[in-house]
């Protein structure tokens, strides 16, 4: 699916700013994670998060994110947010949409609307919500909710760069192929204070161009 690339760096920046500003005490070290699929190809749009003990699980009050609809598609198609984030669904199309989610993480629906709905949807539980539009069957969007401030989406070459406090943490990787029923893949990660961490992770998902 084609994605409007103009918008997602903005979101990435917001997430990084949030992660840096909320880091507690310990000095942060750079962590670079490369996500490859079973065939060794880079996987984009994989949600990479690192659970750091002691870090805040809930996002600060008022934290907001946005998943718009443009040209009858969700933009961005994959959105990672921290628990408690309020997500807006502005409609940039001239037609109206009726977005819904039957996912257990966050069932909701916003019936036929234009522009930005008055109240955003607050994602208060970790998990995955798959979004659809009741009018346009082809539209699909994913909102992955994590309980850590350290998270990012892999880029085109499957890389994610995070500044994480040194220590032993848990790495979680989710990608849309896992749907809303399967949990993210988890593995421990050790972040050295001096060098940080550099890690390549293989996920059981077929290559998605």
């Amino acid at each position: 699916m084609s994605k409007p690339l103009t918008s997602w760096p903005t979101a990435l920046c917001l997430a990084l700013i949030g992660a840096v500003s909320l880091a507690s005490g310990a000095p942060a070290a750079p962590v670079v994670i490369t996500v490859l699929d079973a065939g060794g190809q880079p996987v984009a749009n994989a949600a990479v998060s690192i659970e750091v003990t002691g870090a805040r699980a809930q996002a600060a009050a008022g934290t907001q994110a946005e998943m718009g609809q443009r040209f009858r598609a969700f933009v961005p198609s994959v959105l990672v947010v921290q628990t408690g984030t309020a997500v807006n669904f502005p409609n940039f199309d001239t037609v109206r949409h009726h977005i819904y989610s039957f996912s257990a993480a966050k069932p909701f629906e916003i019936k036929l609307y234009s522009g930005t709905p008055a109240s955003p949807v607050v994602f208060d539980k970790p998990g995955t919500a798959i979004l659809g539009c009741n009018i346009h069957d082809r539209m699909a969007g994913f909102i992955h909710v994590v309980s850590t401030p350290y998270f990012a989406l892999s880029d085109k070459i499957g890389q994610v760069a995070l500044d994480v406090p040194a220590g032993e943490h848990t790495l979680q990787i989710w990608h849309p192929g896992l749907g809303d029923k399967q949990p993210p893949e988890r593995q421990p990660i050790k972040v050295a204070a001096s060098s940080g961490a550099r890690l390549t992770v293989r996920v059981g998902v077929a290559h998605q161009p």
Binding site: F102, I130, L131, G132, D137, M139, A140
Partner: peptide, 9 residues
Amino acid sequence: VPIRAPLTI
């Protein structure tokens, strides 16, 4: 016939 929401559920 598949039931989609929007993925096949």
